[in-house]
Amino acid sequence: MPAEPSLAAPIDPDRRRGRGAQSNSSGRFERFQSIPFDDGWQTLDELPPFKTEVMPEKARTIITRNDSPDLAFDRSINPYRGCEHGCSYCFARPTHAYMGLSPGLDFESKLFYKPDAAKLLEKELSDPGYKPRTIAIGTNTDPYQPIERQHRMMRDILEVLERFNHPVGIVTKSALVLRDVDILGRMAERGLAKVALSITSLDRKLARDMEPRAATPGRRLDALRGLADAGVPVGVLVAPVIPALNDSEIERILDAAAAAGATEAGYVLLRLPLEVSEIFKEWLLRHYPDRFRHVLSVLRSMRGGKDYDSEFGKRQKGEGPYAWQIGRRFEIAAQRLGLNRRHLKLRTDQFSPPVQPPAQLSLF
């Protein structure tokens, strides 16, 4: 069997401790590539560890729109760019290339927050031509990643959405979502909020390897339970499903989530667009070298022989016998547990922008 293409040079483990990516290759838009190597002067030993840096990003708008037929929403909010959770498989990694940064270690250590998010949201929702539909949050990077404790972007955003009676759907891997259970509970009473917890594995070691700075599986299940007890509709997202690595856990994850109060469930097959393909391969070779060829072989059997197929209708679920089997297993388990008997449609009829104080008339 032919060997896989050579991967990027890994960064010293002491410099990337607690991180998911193994390397920090330059983004695809950069003219020059920076490659670390030992020149005999021991300069590599003097480089500092990767520390989390958080920088403000001046955004002009906060609501992002899409017309993808694969998605159940047409608008979303991303309070942060980059994500400290460090998931090697994160399909949002390539967006860091637009900032002149690496989708590798830069993506999880050089983060951006949008300090004007709440003000921008209030302005956009107040536009006379705005038509309300559910806003999705957490579809790109996690809105409750660790830096949310200090910057509180989500808390501010939810306060605006509550005042406007605007529906919101949230996806997260973090138990920090429970901090906002007061707002979410009040919104849920009016049919304006629901939350999904993404659970990739119930195996603590595998979860820590895949998502080094995300909440443990147990804490995510506790978050599901806490939200459900507060009256917030909750679901579980088994994502990503990685063949020959965590696909055997689909039924167990759904069992545990249903017991914690989940009423809806979904899954997404591993996606490896652009730079994510090499970053994931580096991670897989580092943590599970014995499964490297098998994982990629099965994945490619569901992606038309490629690492990734971006075609609408295929990119989320894949195709072929193995993909069909995953889909049927998921459906049978969900049906047995009573999941997805009905999909909650959040209300938009209560949308009401707060009355603004009258502006002073101009003298001219």
Score class of each variant (00 low, 15 high):
261 G>V: 02
261 G>R: 02
261 G>F: 01
262 A>L: 01
262 A>N: 01
263 T>C: 05
264 E>C: 00
264 E>Y: 03
265 A>M: 04
265 A>R: 00
266 G>S: 15
266 G>Q: 11
266 G>I: 03
267 Y>D: 00
267 Y>A: 07
267 Y>T: 00
269 L>Q: 11
269 L>V: 11
270 L>N: 05
270 L>F: 09
272 L>P: 08
273 P>L: 08
273 P>Q: 09
273 P>V: 09
274 L>F: 12
274 L>R: 14
275 E>N: 15
275 E>Q: 15
275 E>S: 15
276 V>E: 09
276 V>I: 12
276 V>W: 09
276 V>G: 11
277 S>L: 11
277 S>E: 13
277 S>C: 10
279 I>Y: 12
279 I>M: 12
280 F>G: 07
280 F>Q: 07
280 F>K: 09
281 K>S: 08
281 K>V: 05
281 K>M: 11
282 E>G: 10
283 W>M: 06
284 L>H: 02
284 L>D: 01
284 L>N: 02
284 L>F: 03
285 L>N: 09
285 L>E: 14
285 L>P: 04
285 L>R: 15
286 R>C: 10
286 R>V: 07
287 H>C: 12
288 Y>T: 04
288 Y>L: 04
289 P>T: 04
289 P>E: 05
289 P>Q: 04
290 D>K: 15
290 D>L: 11
291 R>M: 04
291 R>N: 01
291 R>F: 01
292 F>E: 08
292 F>T: 02
293 R>A: 14
293 R>V: 10
294 H>L: 15
295 V>M: 00
295 V>K: 02
295 V>Q: 00
295 V>Y: 01
296 L>I: 11
296 L>D: 02
297 S>C: 04
298 V>H: 00
299 L>C: 01
300 R>N: 10
300 R>G: 04
300 R>P: 03
301 S>P: 03
301 S>D: 13
301 S>G: 12
301 S>V: 02
302 M>K: 04
302 M>F: 05
302 M>Q: 06
302 M>T: 14
302 M>C: 15
303 R>W: 08
303 R>E: 13
303 R>S: 08
303 R>H: 07
303 R>N: 12
303 R>D: 09
304 G>N: 05
304 G>V: 05
304 G>A: 06
304 G>H: 07
305 G>E: 06
305 G>Y: 10
307 D>F: 13
307 D>S: 13
308 Y>I: 03
308 Y>G: 03
309 D>A: 06
309 D>P: 03
309 D>H: 08
309 D>Y: 04
309 D>V: 08
